[in-house]
Write a protein that binds this DNA or RNA. Structure first.
Length: 496
RNA sequence: GAGCCCGUAGCUCAGCCGGUAGAGCACUUGACUUUUAAUCAAGGGGUCGCGGGUUCGAAUCCCGCCGGGCUCACCA
């Protein structure tokens, strides 16, 4: 691409622009000045002069700035875009001096300029600034993609996101909405008394989730560190400390796993903990948060995703994994006791399960294969097997299960929550069971974090914990088909 | 990791039953003082992703590699 100087020098577009750059400098113009005293943005002017009739001229002098996106009539008309929108610039040969006319002739599509002049509306109804002064604020050396079709190539859009943002309004809108979604989430939580905290990205023991970590090395300490797969265990240490009885973190997690339209190696999650409540409170909070965010950002709770319509207004149904599996397959796992019978039941449904898999894994495998994709409208799936939930409290009514739920929307897991284990001896045993699985070859089984268990030994209040995958939530709220559309710089294999 | 599809000018795309590469926009030069995908005239621009093979001849057919997309598997 154009980053390589040799190639760039040969580029006809760049060569022509370098000549113009030299010509500007010869005119005594600094093509990269330090500032421009802007007085208005395009959208602001559009609103302020909404009532200005065609052919009307004001005496209002404004100063605007932005990127040149279209030049018509040899520079007489320029479409100038700032982050808020478009404003047309009119340059009258008769009212600009020689130097300004020369500068006008050296402008290219893509240049960032500042313009000062009076506001008027043209006969054809276009709000326009009549330029009395034009300044180059940043000379562009490379051409923009085609103005009408824009930038369509997905690879270029992800690799050179700035070009995508310049050319595609929808891409801008998606990332702007992402920001508003997160800001709204943060505000709602702070309004409810939650304290925002930051916990380490570099972990000695990667815990809090079942996933493969990225490994790194600290030179001074000469030790292996892991990028975190979840903030969970540190957030609960803060709960032990009583920093706050309600706390949350919105931040990145890193998982060394596959890339897909719904998976990026680094992704953003909300994780929160509330003392003295159980997972039921987390269900209430999940549906309130997500519905409120939709209302705030989209103005309604009914969203469209592709061909589907999804209603976010609560309350959402709450059903157990086993009940959903039974409804879908007719098989009631709750009546099956032995692990081997559970495996056999799954296999009768043509679902693969490992030979060592227990009752819980078999149930989950059937749920994943037969039920998940059908959970389009929001639903809290409860009754997660203990076997796959090493940080969740045992279900009050059934020792095979935990007080854990995952919220599904559009067939995706969007939230994961439970009543947190605060019994250190229970937690120790759960970790040991995970370690045993690890030794049997499950490299994603969770590792024993003795320091965390020690923290629990000082006493952690009973608490509900909740994690929400923000990227997927943004996908739903922006009708984006790929997670790469909602992450400004998705992970890509380097080119060449 | 597996299967299917894609990669041609700066961009958007045609060409792909093999015969020496095309359009629109963009660019250069000129015309044009009320345009808005401005218009009109002329011109320049391509190792057809990379490497190998088949052939008198390859953008086109075959093989390998690189990059991307989708689906599946793992996962949020």
């Amino acid at each position: 691409m154009a980053e390589e100087p040799e190639e760039g020098e040969e580029n006809q577009f760049r060569a022509a622009r370098l000549q113009k750059l030299a010509a500007l400098k010869a005119l005594g113009v600094d093509p990269y000045p330090y500032e421009w005293p802007r007085s208005a943005e395009a959208k602001e002017l559009e609103a302020r002069y909404a009532e200005l009739p065609p052919d009307a001229v004001t005496e209002d002098r404004v100063s605007v700035a932005g990127r040149v996106r279209a030049i018509r009539n040899s520079g007489m008309f320029i479409d100038l875009y700032d982050a808020s929108g478009k404003i047309q610039i009119f340059s009258d040969r008769k009212s600009l001096d020689e130097a300004q006319l020369a500068l006008l002739g050296l402008l290219d599509l893509g240049d960032i300029i500042g313009v000062e002049g009076i506001v008027r509306r043209t006969r054809r109804g276009e709000l326009t600034v009549n330029a009395s002064r034009i300044a180059v604020l940043a000379k562009a050396l490379l051409p923009l993609p085609e103005k009408y079709h824009g930038l369509a190539d997905l690879e270029t859009r992800y690799r050179q996101r700035y070009l995508d943002l310049i050319m595609n309004e929808e891409s801008r809108a998606v990332l702007q909405k992402r920001s508003r979604i997160i800001a709204t989430m943060r505000r709602l939580l702070i309004d409810r008394g939650f304290l925002e905290v930051e916990t380490p990205m570099l972990h000695v023991i990667p815990g809090g989730a079942t996933a493969k970590p990225f490994v790194t090395h600290h030179n001074a300490l000469d030790m292996q560190l892991y990028l975190r797969i979840a903030p969970e265990l540190h957030l609960k240490r803060l709960l032990v400390g009583g920093l706050s009885d309600r706390l949350f973190e919105i931040n990145r997690n890193f998982r060394n796993e596959g890339i897909s339209p719904r998976h990026n190696p680094e992704f953003t999650s909300l994780e929160l903990y509330q003392a003295y409540v159980d997972y039921g409170a987390m269900m209430d909070l999940t549906e309130t948060l997500i519905a409120e965010i939709a209302r705030e950002v989209l103005g309604e709770t009914r969203i469209r995703y592709g061909e589907r319509e999804i209603e976010f207004a609560g309350p959402w149904p709450r059903e157990s994994m086993a009940a959903l599996v039974k409804r879908e397959t007719g098989v009631d796992f709750l009546t099956i006791a032995a692990d081997e019978d559970a495996r056999a039941a799954a296999r009768r449904l043509k679902i693969e399960v490992a030979d060592g898999a227990g009752w819980g894994r078999a149930l989950e495998a059937v749920f994943a294969a037969r039920v998940e994709a059908k959970l389009v409208q929001p639903i809290h799936v409860t009754g997660f097997p203990r076997e796959i939930s090493p940080l969740a409290k045992t279900d009050r009514g059934d020792p095979r299960l935990t007080e854990r739920f995952e919220t599904y929307i559009n067939g995706w897991e969007v939230a994961n929550a439970f009543s947190e284990i605060n019994d250190p001896l229970d937690q120790q045993q759960r970790f040991e069971a995970q370690m045993a699985e690890r030794e049997r070859g499950d490299e994603e089984a969770q590792r024993l974090d003795a320091d965390y268990v020690q923290a629990l030994e000082y006493g952690m209040p009973p608490a509900g914990g909740l994690g929400i995958g923000i990227d997927r939530l943004v996908m739903l709220l922006t009708d984006s088909p790929s997670i790469r559309d909602v992450i400004a710089f998705p992970t890509m294999r380097p080119k060449g």
